[in-house]
Simulated assay, not measured.
Amino acid sequence: MQSKIDETSIAELRTVFYQMVEEQIKKRMIAEVQDEYVFKTIDPAVVAEEKAGPKRALICVLATLLGGMLGVAIVLVRFAFNKKEPTELTTTV
């Protein structure tokens, strides 16, 4: 920007260039001083007072019970469909 100012011989253009430089410097100074120059925090983050989420203990207990019932059901179904004729036991004396 300084080279453009030096190239210009018209005093009015120089003042315009100096005003532009001054505005840019002001903006930069304001941006460096203020933490929230561009964005403003509407609602700051806070730590939750109580836990909000899935109840892991309840999920584990329910999964164990459902898994156990499913296992028993599979065993009973397989037992019902695998009916074999009873074989005679031969004993040797």
Results as ranks from 00 to 15, higher is better:
Ile25Asn: 09
Ala57Gly: 00
Thr15Gln: 09
Ala45Arg: 11
Glu50Phe: 11
Ala31Asp: 09
Gln19Pro: 00
Thr64Trp: 08
Lys4Arg: 10
Ala31Gln: 14
Arg14Cys: 11
Glu36Cys: 01
Leu58Tyr: 03
Val61Trp: 01
Gly53Arg: 15
Ser3Trp: 00
Val38Cys: 10
Thr41Lys: 03
Gln2Val: 05
Met29Asp: 06
Gly53Lys: 06
Arg14Asp: 11
Val33Met: 08
Met20Glu: 14
Glu49Asp: 15
Gln24Leu: 09
Met29Lys: 10
Val33Ala: 06
Asp35Ile: 01
Ile30Ser: 08
Arg14Val: 09
Ile5Tyr: 05
Pro44Lys: 11
Asp35Met: 01
Val61Arg: 10
Arg28Ala: 14
Asp35Ser: 02
Ile42Gln: 09
Leu66Ala: 06
Glu7Arg: 11
Gly53Gln: 12
Gly53Phe: 11
Phe17Asp: 14
Val47Cys: 06
Ile59Asn: 02
Val46Phe: 08
Phe39Thr: 07
Val33Glu: 12
Lys26Ser: 02
Val16Thr: 13
Ala57Asn: 08
Ile10Met: 03
Arg14Ser: 07
Gln19Asp: 15
Ile25Tyr: 14
Gln24Ser: 03
Ile5Asp: 01
Val21Cys: 01
Gln34Leu: 15
Val46His: 13
Thr41Met: 04
Lys4Asn: 08
Ala57Ile: 04
Leu66Pro: 00
Val16Met: 09
Ile10Ser: 15
Leu66His: 09
Phe17Glu: 11
Ser3His: 04
Ala48Arg: 08
Ala57Leu: 05
Glu49Leu: 05
Ile5Asn: 03
Lys26Phe: 09
Val21Gln: 13
Glu7Ser: 14
Ala57His: 05
Asp35Lys: 13
Phe39Ser: 08
Ile59Leu: 12
Cys60Asn: 04
Arg56Ile: 11
Thr64Cys: 12
Ile42Gly: 01
